[in-house]
């Protein structure tokens, strides 16, 4: 059977939560509601004319306006396959990296889904309700966040292990390392925020390196060359 026939079979059986067949892309897929993924997969597995014995993968896709969970199932007996997708539209408020879309787990229907669902939880933060053993599978257990989300903020270290390119090597850290690290991080945050580290010279000033705002009473003026004004006849008054 091809995708149209499989979709017709599913809608003919009246399985709850079934959506439309999308044939716009090169790989047609059936959109399923979150609550309908378990009845649809159970039907596809158990119906003798569908006989989808094999779940290839459960994967997550984050797009600008939605997060999708895709299921690829195929039948070795009948040589046909089908792609199912559960779509979560991004909510107007709170659709950031703390947003956790939830879908029922299918690990008891297809045991192969167990580790795939753990991986999607680990990397994308999709919750699979009713999963028998929901832990992180790739990253350390104490990891914070889900790194494949678009607005994930990168960690600078994990458990004392530096993860940044410009981090100080662990065996070169001196007694003042923590203080220096704080200064370095503050400077980095400042760079990220786009704040210029040095004030641009005041407009009209011909001293590009003086900072434009050296107070006249401070010691900072000892190397500042005063600009020549019009009434300076010999031009030596500013020289030290």
């Amino acid at each position: 059977m091809n995708e149209q026939e499989l979709h017709g079979k599913l809608s003919g059986a009246g399985v709850a939560g079934l959506g439309e067949l999308d044939t716009t892309g090169p790989d047609p897929f059936v959109v399923v509601e979150g609550s309908g993924i378990r009845p649809v997969l159970s039907f596809l597995r158990d119906d003798p004319t569908c006989r989808m014995e094999m779940l290839h993968l459960v994967t997550g896709i984050e797009r600008e306006d939605r997060i999708e969970v895709a299921y690829h199932v195929s039948s070795l007996e009948h040589h046909h396959s089908l792609t199912l997708k559960v779509v979560f539209p991004r909510p107007e408020a709170g659709g950031h990296d703390d947003w956790r879309p939830g879908v029922p787990s299918v690990a008891d229907i297809y045991p192969a889904a167990d580790w795939h669902e753990r991986e999607q939880w680990d990397l994308l933060g999709i919750e699979f309700e009713g999963h028998p053993d929901m832990r992180r599978i790739l990253l350390p257990d104490e990891w914070i966040g889900h790194p494949l989300r678009k607005d994930y903020s990168y960690p600078s270290e994990h458990g004392g292990i530096p993860l940044e390119l410009d981090a100080v090597p662990m065996y070169e850290r001196g007694p003042d390392w923590e203080r220096e690290e704080k200064v370095r991080k503050a400077k980095k945050e400042e760079r990220k925020a786009g704040t210029p580290l040095r004030q641009p010279p005041a407009p009209g000033s011909d001293r590009p390196h003086a900072g434009g705002q050296a107070p006249a009473s401070s010691k900072g003026q000892r190397h500042v060359i005063e600009p020549h004004s019009g009434d300076d006849d010999d031009g030596k008054s500013g020289a030290h």
Partner: peptide
């Protein structure tokens, strides 16, 4: 760091950060 130098969220950027 190699290919993971920019987007490698859990890659140590060179083992010289850990051991000499």
């Amino acid at each position: 760091g190699g290919p993971y130098v920019k987007w490698g969220y859990n890659t140590v950027k060179g083992v010289h950060k850990i051991i000499p």
